[in-house]
Design a binder for these strands. Structure first.
Lengths: 165, 165
DNA sequence: GCCAAGTGTCTTGACGTCAAGGTATATCCC
DNA sequence: GGGATATACCTTGACGTCAAGACACTTGGC
């Protein structure tokens, strides 16, 4: 089936036949799909009264395992936001009672952010809902295709994830 | 090579062995890659003194072909933003002299947004820069792999692009 | 023709993010 | 062990986006 990027690429080939726009076939699809996923996720999380950014922070802590705590700096690298944003997020999650701030016993500059019991419960529920939704989206592909797609994407993301930048 | 999503998935399998987190292998990579691409594009466009959102609007008009004009409504569907956002974007691009607003001769509610000569030049230059950068990112993959990846992504994006939502 | 519903764009106010810079503490090297 | 540099987090102010709704015009049914 045709998608919006097919139309976009066709338009460029008509308007700029001198250019090779093949890269757009991959990367414009990545950007547009991410945009659609953002919207879908927002809807899925709304059922659990969570915003996507709240989910990102809570699940980063949840994944860390007992005692469910990380420094703001560790949260930064996992969520790809700036430090000012993370400060703001931790403030708001603290007010909602989903996380709490503790002094880092080994570094007096530092802080540890810990998930509360309620934060953990909400993260677990929202994750289940998200996976259900994502499974539905991916039903378009066979298992083999999904594996193939994941492998190709890994090749593109690995340089970004491993070279700091 | 391992990427951040491999680590994320491994963490979930350790913390929630009861869940099947396979969907994350694909869709978390899509979201994270899009995030990285946003940052890279911002840098590439900065050389041409354009913001990503400016590029999005200018190139939508450029792709439309002579006389390089579209209604705000048409621009909405192409850029996936809300109408308030588009009004704001058109205002700012008008102030910078890259587009101009014209009354729609066939509908007095309507407006047409037209690219100025300068807007067209800037769009063309920035597109060339973007393609160069994207080609470098995609050099990780063979031509056959890129084609395969584009096809798999199309299968996922088509439902979003064709069913309104 | 006229009224109701639909459409196209703009306005408003709240919100989340970022970049840049500030302060406090830690680390390194002489 | 003292001073320069690095690190960790927070503060600030500007900015772009969104959701909801207002307004003006158009279209369709009677």
């Amino acid at each position: 089936m045709e998608d919006e990027v097919d139309r976009l690429v066709a338009a460029w080939r008509r308007e700029r036949p001198d250019l090779d726009v093949e890269p757009l076939e991959v990367l414009s699809r990545v950007s547009r799909l991410a945009r659609h996923l953002d919207r879908a996720r927002r809807l899925a999380f709304a059922e659990h009264h969570l915003e996507p950014w709240e989910f990102d922070v809570l699940t980063a802590l949840r994944r860390a395992g007992t005692p469910y705590q990380l420094s703001p700096g560790q949260l930064l690298t996992q969520t790809l936001v700036t430090s000012g944003t993370m400060t703001n997020r931790i403030d708001r999650l603290t007010k909602k009672g989903l996380v709490e701030r503790l002094p880092d016993p080994s570094d007096r500059r530092g802080v540890l952010v810990r998930l509360t019991q309620e934060g953990q419960d909400r993260a677990d529920q929202a994750l289940a809902g998200l996976l259900e939704q994502e499974r539905a989206i991916l039903a378009e592909l066979s298992r083999a295709q999904r594996t193939e797609l994941a492998a190709l994407l890994r090749q593109l993301t690995a340089p970004f994830d491993n070279i700091p930048g």
